[in-house]
Amino acid sequence: MSLLLTEGLGRRFGGLEAVRDVDLALREGEVRALIGPNGAGKTTLVSMLCGRIAASSGRIHFAGREVTRLPAHRRIRMGMAYTFQITSIFAELTVRENVRLAVQRVADDAALELRVAETLACVGLEGRADQRAGDLAYGHQRLVEVAMGLGQAPRLLILDEPTQGLSDGEVAGFVALIRAVARETTVLLIEHNIDVVMALADRITVLNFGRVIAEGAPAEIRADPVVQEAYLGG
């Protein structure tokens, strides 16, 4: 059964069709990568999924329910989590407070602090829990962002270019983290680093000029001449 399903999803900005006619079906438990050249409409697409921007056309179903018109916070409450491409954390608050805000919606008082500590440990930030989030190095801020996604114990975790700007070592750690997470959670991953995509994705969807031009297992996508022309080979 599909956890997330879109039918004919599209979005116009004035005369520009940033996304058009996208049919997407995410199986419960899979790791799906969404790739494509810059400006292909990836962020627009996932922004529609989580409700940051409204769809111009088409429909979105999540967990068996139509959510096309639901406001963002209601979709998040149904079990979506979204991590921003441009780091968006509570810079003035401590790392712990950042994560607590993510966790407190899904945990009762008794479990709260334990869950916060677990989530911090999960991304390796337990040693920096009481630092001001805005003071952290960029890579660590990305981890706070990811921790806020994980802390919500989502059914679907949407990661928008999570490894952008990370060092090689940090990327390796991130891949291991998402592997562990993917055992319990469906993941939709926008990613430019093709090694990360190949290491993590069960299936890959390729977007170009707002349309889906290919979809399949990593090996198929790697071999697809259309994809190679549009993206990989280009």
Binding site: H73, L101, R105
Partner: peptide, 18 residues
């Protein structure tokens, strides 16, 4: 805490489900 979160970063608070 949620009020402070809204003060600090409204969009992030919304996308934490508040």
């Amino acid at each position: 805490r949620v009020l402070v979160a809204i003060r600090e970063n409204e969009e992030r608070a919304r996308l934490l489900g508040y």
